[in-house]
Amino acid sequence: MLGERVSRASTLLEDVDALLRRAGAHANDLEALAVGVGPGSFTGTRIGLAAAQGLALALDIPAAGVSTLDALAAGAPGAQTVIDARRREIFVAGPRVLAPADLALEHGTVLVGDGAIRYRELLEAAGAEVPPDDDERHLPRARFHAALARNFGPAELVEPLYVRQPDARPDK
């Protein structure tokens, strides 16, 4: 591993730039891309995928998508992953979206992810264990995306995992 940074969607490319500089590498040195496809923030997921598509087109390299739930799980062996889906819901393995209270839990199950932090009280009351907020297992790390990436191909074929449909309902 030459380097890793934790980024937010809005600063993604700044961090990519800094990461490569730190590693003494150039964009042309990239041979393939691994990109998180969610579930999570719709806009954040799209920023990652759009950036990956732009990079793949510019550099003529392939890409592979990795579920954010899988990347989290890879960094937290034995734990279940819970991502905040907003609107008082969570994304869990499946992938599925459900209310935190509807998550079936065995006593002592370890839960990681921003959804586990957000609903800590409720989940702990139901018997789960949630590591401290600053435990690094709560964050999906790019090194796990890179390690899990399989089946590299054209970037435009990498699909986002939205799980939830848009709210709008057709008129007719």
Partner: peptide, 20 residues
């Protein structure tokens, strides 16, 4: 629409950056 704009903007930034 910000969510829509960000698709084009992110693609454009990545493309421009990768080709300097």
């Amino acid at each position: 629409l910000v969510g829509a704009l960000l698709v084009g903007l992110s693609t454009a930034k990545a493309l421009a950056w990768a080709r300097r």
